[in-house]
Design a protein around this nucleic acid. Sequence first.
DNA 1: TTGACACGACACCAAATGGTGTCTTATAAT
DNA 2: ATTATAAGACACCATTTGGTGTCGTGTCAA
Lengths: 109, 109
Amino acid sequence: MTENNQMRDVFDAIADPTRRRLIQLLAEAEELPLHELTTQFQMGRTAVSKHLTILKEAGLVLDRKVGRETRFRLNAEPLKEVQDWVGFYRKFWLTNMMRLNQLLEEEEE
Amino acid sequence: MTENNQMRDVFDAIADPTRRRLIQLLAEAEELPLHELTTQFQMGRTAVSKHLTILKEAGLVLDRKVGRETRFRLNAEPLKEVQDWVGFYRKFWLTNMMRLNQLLEEEEE
DNA sequence: TTGACACGACACCAAATGGTGTCTTATAAT
DNA sequence: ATTATAAGACACCATTTGGTGTCGTGTCAA
Protein backbone atom coordinates (compact mmCIF):
# COMPACT_ATOMS: atom_id res chain seq x y z
CA MET A 1 0.00 0.00 0.00
CA THR A 2 0.76 3.72 -0.11
CA GLU A 3 1.97 2.76 -3.62
CA ASN A 4 5.01 4.97 -3.69
CA ASN A 5 6.03 3.99 -7.21
CA GLN A 6 9.04 6.23 -6.74
CA MET A 7 10.53 6.37 -10.20
CA ARG A 8 12.49 9.55 -9.60
CA ASP A 9 15.19 10.32 -7.06
CA VAL A 10 13.97 12.79 -4.44
CA PHE A 11 17.37 14.48 -4.40
CA ASP A 12 17.06 14.99 -8.10
CA ALA A 13 13.56 16.41 -7.73
CA ILE A 14 14.53 19.05 -5.18
CA ALA A 15 17.69 20.07 -7.04
CA ASP A 16 15.86 22.62 -9.15
CA PRO A 17 15.01 26.00 -7.54
CA THR A 18 11.73 26.24 -9.45
CA ARG A 19 10.64 22.93 -7.99
CA ARG A 20 11.63 23.96 -4.47
CA ARG A 21 9.53 27.07 -4.93
CA LEU A 22 6.62 24.93 -6.08
CA ILE A 23 6.99 22.84 -2.96
CA GLN A 24 6.93 25.99 -0.87
CA LEU A 25 3.84 27.35 -2.62
CA LEU A 26 2.00 24.07 -2.12
CA ALA A 27 3.04 23.99 1.53
CA GLU A 28 1.50 27.41 2.04
CA ALA A 29 -1.69 26.82 0.14
CA GLU A 30 -2.71 23.20 0.70
CA GLU A 31 -4.05 22.76 -2.85
CA LEU A 32 -3.56 24.78 -6.04
CA PRO A 33 -4.51 24.37 -9.70
CA LEU A 34 -1.85 24.53 -12.39
CA HIS A 35 -2.87 27.90 -13.82
CA GLU A 36 -2.64 29.52 -10.42
CA LEU A 37 0.82 28.10 -9.80
CA THR A 38 1.86 29.29 -13.23
CA THR A 39 1.16 32.93 -12.38
CA GLN A 40 3.92 32.76 -9.76
CA PHE A 41 6.60 32.15 -12.39
CA GLN A 42 7.85 33.84 -15.51
CA MET A 43 7.94 30.66 -17.52
CA GLY A 44 4.98 29.26 -19.42
CA ARG A 45 2.36 26.78 -18.29
CA THR A 46 3.99 23.83 -20.06
CA ALA A 47 7.27 24.31 -18.19
CA VAL A 48 5.56 24.49 -14.79
CA SER A 49 3.55 21.43 -15.66
CA LYS A 50 6.75 19.53 -16.47
CA HIS A 51 8.26 20.47 -13.14
CA LEU A 52 5.13 19.25 -11.38
CA THR A 53 5.37 15.97 -13.27
CA ILE A 54 8.90 15.50 -11.97
CA LEU A 55 7.73 16.24 -8.43
CA LYS A 56 4.95 13.71 -8.94
CA GLU A 57 7.43 11.09 -10.10
CA ALA A 58 9.36 11.63 -6.88
CA GLY A 59 6.13 11.27 -4.90
CA LEU A 60 6.38 14.82 -3.59
CA VAL A 61 3.16 16.00 -5.17
CA LEU A 62 -0.30 14.57 -5.66
CA ASP A 63 -2.85 15.77 -8.18
CA ARG A 64 -6.54 15.39 -8.80
CA LYS A 65 -8.82 16.71 -11.51
CA VAL A 66 -11.59 19.05 -10.42
CA GLY A 67 -13.70 20.15 -13.34
CA ARG A 68 -11.39 21.45 -16.01
CA GLU A 69 -8.53 22.16 -13.66
CA THR A 70 -5.86 19.90 -12.16
CA ARG A 71 -5.20 20.67 -8.53
CA PHE A 72 -1.89 19.87 -6.90
CA ARG A 73 -1.00 19.34 -3.30
CA LEU A 74 2.16 18.59 -1.39
CA ASN A 75 3.17 15.20 -0.07
CA ALA A 76 6.21 15.96 2.06
CA GLU A 77 6.80 12.40 3.18
CA PRO A 78 9.55 11.52 0.66
CA LEU A 79 11.59 14.36 2.15
CA LYS A 80 12.19 12.11 5.15
CA GLU A 81 14.84 10.36 3.07
CA VAL A 82 16.62 13.67 2.59
CA GLN A 83 16.44 14.48 6.27
CA ASP A 84 17.82 11.08 7.23
CA TRP A 85 20.64 11.43 4.76
CA VAL A 86 21.67 14.93 5.76
CA GLY A 87 21.18 14.15 9.44
CA PHE A 88 23.99 11.64 9.24
CA TYR A 89 26.45 14.39 8.30
CA ARG A 90 25.43 16.74 11.10
CA LYS A 91 28.21 15.41 13.30
CA PHE A 92 30.76 16.29 10.66
CA TRP A 93 30.01 19.96 10.47
CA LEU A 94 29.59 20.07 14.24
CA THR A 95 33.03 18.55 14.89
CA ASN A 96 34.33 20.96 12.28
CA MET A 97 32.94 23.87 14.27
CA MET A 98 34.47 22.51 17.44
CA ARG A 99 37.86 22.24 15.75
CA LEU A 100 37.47 25.79 14.51
CA ASN A 101 36.73 27.04 18.01
CA GLN A 102 39.77 25.20 19.26
CA LEU A 103 41.95 26.84 16.64
CA LEU A 104 40.57 30.27 17.47
CA GLU A 105 41.31 29.71 21.14
CA GLU A 106 44.83 28.61 20.36
CA GLU A 107 45.38 31.70 18.25
CA GLU A 108 44.34 33.98 21.10
CA GLU A 109 47.69 34.52 22.79
CA MET B 1 35.79 35.19 6.29
CA THR B 2 35.37 31.44 5.75
CA GLU B 3 35.28 32.58 2.08
CA ASN B 4 32.43 30.43 0.95
CA ASN B 5 32.57 31.52 -2.68
CA GLN B 6 29.61 29.26 -3.25
CA MET B 7 29.24 29.27 -7.02
CA ARG B 8 27.16 26.08 -7.12
CA ASP B 9 23.87 25.23 -5.48
CA VAL B 10 24.31 22.63 -2.73
CA PHE B 11 21.02 20.99 -3.72
CA ASP B 12 22.37 20.63 -7.21
CA ALA B 13 25.64 19.16 -5.94
CA ILE B 14 23.98 16.42 -3.89
CA ALA B 15 21.48 15.53 -6.60
CA ASP B 16 23.83 13.04 -8.22
CA PRO B 17 24.19 9.59 -6.58
CA THR B 18 27.89 9.38 -7.51
CA ARG B 19 28.52 12.65 -5.67
CA ARG B 20 26.60 11.46 -2.61
CA ARG B 21 28.75 8.34 -2.60
CA LEU B 22 31.87 10.50 -2.81
CA ILE B 23 30.64 12.46 0.19
CA GLN B 24 30.13 9.22 2.06
CA LEU B 25 33.59 7.89 1.19
CA LEU B 26 35.20 11.13 2.32
CA ALA B 27 33.20 11.07 5.53
CA GLU B 28 34.52 7.60 6.30
CA ALA B 29 38.15 8.24 5.40
CA GLU B 30 38.97 11.81 6.38
CA GLU B 31 41.23 12.41 3.38
CA LEU B 32 41.63 10.56 0.07
CA PRO B 33 43.55 11.12 -3.16
CA LEU B 34 41.76 11.10 -6.50
CA HIS B 35 43.13 7.79 -7.75
CA GLU B 36 41.99 6.01 -4.61
CA LEU B 37 38.51 7.45 -4.91
CA THR B 38 38.43 6.43 -8.54
CA THR B 39 38.89 2.73 -7.70
CA GLN B 40 35.50 2.83 -5.94
CA PHE B 41 33.66 3.57 -9.16
CA GLN B 42 33.33 2.03 -12.57
CA MET B 43 33.79 5.31 -14.40
CA GLY B 44 37.17 6.75 -15.31
CA ARG B 45 39.37 9.15 -13.40
CA THR B 46 38.27 12.19 -15.43
CA ALA B 47 34.62 11.65 -14.58
CA VAL B 48 35.29 11.31 -10.86
CA SER B 49 37.46 14.41 -10.99
CA LYS B 50 34.62 16.36 -12.56
CA HIS B 51 32.22 15.28 -9.83
CA LEU B 52 34.74 16.39 -7.22
CA THR B 53 35.03 19.76 -8.95
CA ILE B 54 31.27 20.20 -8.67
CA LEU B 55 31.42 19.30 -4.98
CA LYS B 56 34.23 21.82 -4.58
CA GLU B 57 32.17 24.53 -6.28
CA ALA B 58 29.42 23.86 -3.75
CA GLY B 59 31.96 24.11 -0.93
CA LEU B 60 31.37 20.49 0.09
CA VAL B 61 34.90 19.36 -0.57
CA LEU B 62 38.37 20.78 -0.01
CA ASP B 63 41.51 19.66 -1.77
CA ARG B 64 45.26 20.03 -1.34
CA LYS B 65 48.18 18.85 -3.38
CA VAL B 66 50.55 16.44 -1.67
CA GLY B 67 53.42 15.44 -3.93
CA ARG B 68 51.95 14.28 -7.18
CA GLU B 69 48.53 13.49 -5.76
CA THR B 70 45.54 15.68 -4.96
CA ARG B 71 43.89 14.76 -1.68
CA PHE B 72 40.27 15.54 -1.00
CA ARG B 73 38.41 15.90 2.23
CA LEU B 74 34.83 16.59 3.21
CA ASN B 75 33.48 19.91 4.35
CA ALA B 76 29.97 19.09 5.51
CA GLU B 77 29.06 22.60 6.60
CA PRO B 78 27.14 23.63 3.44
CA LEU B 79 24.77 20.73 4.17
CA LYS B 80 23.33 22.84 6.96
CA GLU B 81 21.36 24.71 4.32
CA VAL B 82 19.79 21.43 3.21
CA GLN B 83 18.97 20.47 6.75
CA ASP B 84 17.34 23.82 7.44
CA TRP B 85 15.34 23.60 4.26
CA VAL B 86 14.08 20.07 4.78
CA GLY B 87 13.52 20.67 8.49
CA PHE B 88 10.87 23.21 7.62
CA TYR B 89 8.78 20.53 5.93
CA ARG B 90 8.98 18.05 8.77
CA LYS B 91 5.69 19.28 10.19
CA PHE B 92 4.02 18.51 6.89
CA TRP B 93 4.83 14.84 6.73
CA LEU B 94 4.19 14.54 10.46
CA THR B 95 0.67 15.97 10.21
CA ASN B 96 0.19 13.69 7.22
CA MET B 97 1.07 10.69 9.35
CA MET B 98 -1.32 11.82 12.05
CA ARG B 99 -4.05 12.14 9.48
CA LEU B 100 -3.20 8.69 8.16
CA ASN B 101 -3.40 7.19 11.64
CA GLN B 102 -6.77 8.85 12.09
CA LEU B 103 -8.00 7.32 8.85
CA LEU B 104 -6.74 3.89 9.82
CA GLU B 105 -8.51 4.13 13.15
CA GLU B 106 -11.73 5.15 11.46
CA GLU B 107 -11.48 2.21 9.08
CA GLU B 108 -11.17 -0.25 11.96
CA GLU B 109 -14.79 -1.04 12.58
C1' DT C 1 68.16 9.08 -15.77
C1' DT C 2 64.65 6.56 -17.12
C1' DG C 3 60.20 4.90 -16.37
C1' DA C 4 55.85 4.73 -14.13
C1' DC C 5 52.32 7.14 -11.84
C1' DA C 6 48.89 11.03 -10.61
C1' DC C 7 46.71 14.51 -12.42
C1' DG C 8 45.07 18.79 -15.03
C1' DA C 9 43.42 20.40 -19.32
C1' DC C 10 41.23 19.61 -23.42
C1' DA C 11 38.29 18.06 -27.16
C1' DC C 12 34.58 15.35 -27.89
C1' DC C 13 29.97 12.97 -27.60
C1' DA C 14 25.14 11.14 -26.44
C1' DA C 15 21.50 11.88 -23.58
C1' DA C 16 18.97 14.55 -20.26
C1' DT C 17 17.20 19.04 -18.90
C1' DG C 18 14.51 23.13 -19.02
C1' DG C 19 12.46 25.82 -21.71
C1' DT C 20 9.36 27.20 -26.03
C1' DG C 21 5.13 27.04 -29.22
C1' DT C 22 1.01 24.75 -31.31
C1' DC C 23 -2.95 21.74 -31.52
C1' DT C 24 -6.76 19.44 -29.39
C1' DT C 25 -10.14 18.33 -26.03
C1' DA C 26 -12.93 18.91 -21.97
C1' DT C 27 -15.27 22.07 -19.14
C1' DA C 28 -17.37 26.49 -17.73
C1' DA C 29 -19.53 30.86 -18.59
C1' DT C 30 -22.51 34.07 -21.48
C1' DA D 1 -24.92 27.68 -28.97
C1' DT D 2 -20.92 30.09 -28.76
C1' DT D 3 -16.92 31.49 -26.72
C1' DA D 4 -13.27 31.48 -23.30
C1' DT D 5 -10.52 28.86 -20.08
C1' DA D 6 -7.57 24.86 -18.29
C1' DA D 7 -4.65 21.65 -19.39
C1' DG D 8 -2.71 17.36 -21.79
C1' DA D 9 0.12 15.85 -25.69
C1' DC D 10 3.52 16.84 -28.91
C1' DA D 11 7.26 18.55 -31.62
C1' DC D 12 11.02 21.29 -31.21
C1' DC D 13 15.39 23.58 -29.53
C1' DA D 14 19.64 25.23 -26.90
C1' DT D 15 22.26 24.15 -23.07
C1' DT D 16 23.88 21.26 -19.47
C1' DT D 17 25.26 16.91 -17.84
C1' DG D 18 27.91 12.90 -17.31
C1' DG D 19 30.67 10.32 -19.43
C1' DT D 20 34.80 9.14 -22.77
C1' DG D 21 39.78 9.38 -24.66
C1' DT D 22 44.26 11.76 -25.30
C1' DC D 23 48.10 14.74 -24.41
C1' DG D 24 51.36 17.13 -21.49
C1' DT D 25 53.59 17.79 -17.12
C1' DG D 26 55.16 17.33 -12.43
C1' DT D 27 56.71 13.86 -9.13
C1' DC D 28 58.30 9.60 -7.16
C1' DA D 29 61.01 5.19 -7.63
C1' DA D 30 64.65 1.99 -9.76
